[in-house]
């Protein structure tokens, strides 16, 4: 079992990506350094920040960072713990997201997931590699998960 959110949980997603790269190869490579922020909304929760390096068809590294740092990334996907949990549960339940839980759907109105970027062109990398990111999170189907909240 892997706890969400945790470094181990995302490392497991990365492992799945690296060991099952055929669909990623089909989509084409993605070279991008990006981050996920999981925001606390309750006093007993912690905010988490994870930085990913995608290179070619795999995830070269996943790191946990202090939440108040500004990692050098193309963009950060920011959302509350509740939003991430709901998305992951939906992916796991339906063996893939339903229409209301795709990354594109959740980010298009800038809420509940906000794509924060230092520059708008680097923000566009989210759309350029959109299906690669979706496939990465779809890996959650294979990750036995316990949720902290």
């Amino acid at each position: 079992m892997f706890t969400f959110p945790s470094l181990e949980w995302f490392q497991e997603l990365a492992r799945l990506m690296n060991e099952h790269d055929v669909p990623y190869r089909r989509l084409g490579y993605a070279d991008v350094r990006w981050a996920v922020e999981i925001q606390a909304t309750e006093p007993d929760q912690l905010t988490h920040l994870f930085v990913f390096v995608f290179e070619e068809y795999g995830c070269k590294s996943v790191q946990a960072c202090e939440p108040d740092t500004q990692p050098e990334v193309a963009f950060t996907m920011r959302a509350t713990l509740g939003t991430w949990e709901e998305m992951i549960r939906n992916i796991q339940k339906n063996k893939g997201p339903d229409l209301q839980h795709t990354l594109n759907y959740l980010t298009l109105p800038d809420d509940p997931i906000y794509i924060d970027a230092p520059d708008f062109l680097s923000r566009d990398l989210f759309a350029r590699y959109g299906q690669t990111f979706q496939l990465f999170f779809n890996g959650a189907i294979q990750v036995p998960t316990t949720f902290t909240s």
């Binding site: 229409l99 594109n104 759907y105 298009l108 759309a127 590699y129 959109g130 299906q131």
Partner: peptide, 26 residues
Amino acid sequence: FRLGELIAQNEVEKTIFRLCAQDESR
């Protein structure tokens, strides 16, 4: 194209819009 996912009625249309959006972004 990103909106396309909202107007898509089936997997065919979703796939089309998602793949086209990646190209368009490039």
